[in-house]
Simulated scan of single mutants.
Amino acid sequence: MRVVRQFGLNWFTTVMGIGIVAALTYTSPITIPLQHVVGVTLFAALNVVFISAFVMWLLRWVLATETAVDDFRKPGRALFYGAFAMGLNVVGNDYFLIGTHLLPRLLAIHISIGIWLAGTLASLFTVIVVPYLLFAEHRVEREETVASWLIPLVPPIVAAATGTNLLPYVGGSAVQFAMLAVIVAMFGVTFFLFILMSTLVYARLVYHRRLSGQEAPSLWVEIGPIGMSMGTMCGLPIQANHLFGAYANALHAFAEVFAMAMWGIGVWWILISTMHTLLHVTRRGDGLPFHLGWWSYVFPIGSFTSGTYALDHLMGHSFFAIAGVVQLAILWVCFTVVFVRTTMGIVKGELMTWRAVHQLEGSEHVCAQAKRA
């Protein structure tokens, strides 16, 4: 019960991070050693972590219902329903990109479609309910604005980007067009809200105190929807070209220009976020205390890298293939650090208290004796 009560939806950020690193490693545009072995290993780990997190979430509703309901009353906790929705979409996408090479192809595609439908419903729930609660129930101040508020707004565009891959596999042209309409609509919802939210974040950075070391990782969240917008727009001319008829060529040209422009703003956000991060490791900063928010160094960078991959697929230019692999290397550095710190935090009981208090005190006593010896 202690563990169940402590389990928050922010743990689904680990699902998002592991899943996107697995997919990007497996599908690297330039062949790298052991990419498929590493990708499959991470895919297996993803399934274990996702199932564990999903079971914990269900148990929380059954065994600690009041605590689960209370998530909706706290703005800092409610927003992580977005992580739950994005986690679903990432898992479904990995079954398409990796699972089709491990399972019977048709089975993996059906699993991917089923998870995508669940992720889409969760995404729509999140993007409607959480902002409404922020508008009508929660009390926040302007100086409290952080980019983490994007988390419940981003899931529809993640569902749009991952759903684009599935378009050719959902039936006849009528069904495909209906799915296309949903995908474009979800893209529009998140992209519009992303612009509004980014304006608030920019204003907060200009007019209020600087981000603390605790808050600094949140700035990286801005990069996530940029990458997913690139992935969606680049995927449409490839997967849905036949549905646009006479407008297909125009869509292809627009996608190239749009995605390259978004790539530019993504690089800008990465530089600004990096400068904020480095500031806090100097004497002028507050330090960077570890918490689960560090997974913001993983999924958003992975999202942007997936957008770069999509540009390479659309244009076939070596520039974006090389850029994608460079970004993958940076992603792996961030992922390794965050994964190791998270594992250590779990084992030590720092991120989640899973041992009795007397056990913890006993281990500390043993450590103290060892140091004296």
Rank of each mutant, 00 (worst) to 15 (best):
residue 237 P to F: 11
residue 81 Y to A: 02
residue 284 R to S: 07
residue 221 V to F: 03
residue 80 F to G: 01
residue 360 L to T: 13
residue 160 A to P: 00
residue 136 A to R: 15
residue 355 R to K: 15
residue 182 V to I: 15
residue 223 I to Y: 03
residue 366 V to K: 11
residue 285 G to R: 12
residue 50 F to C: 02
residue 299 F to H: 07
residue 231 G to F: 07
residue 148 S to L: 03
residue 306 S to M: 12
residue 146 V to E: 05
residue 337 V to H: 09
residue 228 M to G: 04
residue 50 F to E: 04
residue 370 A to R: 15
residue 333 V to A: 14
residue 291 H to A: 14
residue 107 L to P: 09
residue 105 R to C: 01
residue 344 M to C: 10
residue 23 A to M: 13
residue 28 S to H: 00
residue 156 P to N: 04
residue 166 L to P: 04
residue 86 M to S: 11
residue 144 E to M: 12
residue 187 F to W: 15
residue 307 G to D: 11
residue 185 A to M: 15
residue 56 M to T: 06
residue 146 V to C: 05
residue 232 T to Q: 08
residue 33 P to V: 01
residue 76 G to M: 01
residue 67 T to I: 11
residue 177 F to L: 14
residue 117 L to R: 06
residue 362 G to V: 07
residue 183 I to K: 05
residue 372 R to Q: 11
residue 244 F to V: 12
residue 52 S to K: 00
residue 320 F to P: 09
residue 94 D to T: 15
residue 246 A to C: 00
residue 326 V to P: 00
residue 342 T to M: 00
residue 255 A to Y: 05
residue 171 G to I: 10
residue 260 M to S: 04
residue 85 A to I: 06
residue 286 D to A: 09
residue 321 A to D: 14
residue 367 C to G: 09
residue 372 R to A: 10
residue 373 A to P: 07
residue 207 Y to D: 13
residue 276 H to W: 00
residue 170 V to E: 09
residue 134 L to H: 13
residue 328 L to Y: 08
residue 233 M to V: 15
residue 71 D to E: 13
residue 205 L to V: 07
residue 254 F to Y: 15
residue 333 V to G: 06
residue 111 I to N: 06
residue 112 S to H: 04
residue 294 W to T: 05
residue 73 R to H: 13
residue 55 V to A: 00
residue 276 H to M: 03
residue 329 A to N: 03
residue 106 L to V: 12
residue 156 P to G: 02
residue 361 E to S: 11
residue 23 A to K: 12
residue 24 L to F: 02
residue 130 V to R: 03
residue 193 L to Q: 12
residue 13 T to W: 00
residue 224 G to V: 04
residue 121 L to M: 15
residue 154 V to K: 00
residue 240 A to Q: 06
residue 317 H to S: 13
residue 265 I to S: 08
residue 300 P to E: 00
residue 40 V to W: 11
residue 8 G to D: 08
residue 172 G to P: 08
residue 11 W to C: 06
residue 247 Y to G: 08
residue 137 E to Q: 14
residue 144 E to H: 13
residue 297 Y to D: 02
residue 44 A to L: 07
residue 43 F to S: 08
residue 202 Y to E: 04
residue 111 I to H: 08
residue 129 V to H: 10
residue 267 V to G: 02
residue 252 H to A: 14
residue 25 T to C: 05
residue 361 E to G: 03
residue 372 R to Y: 07
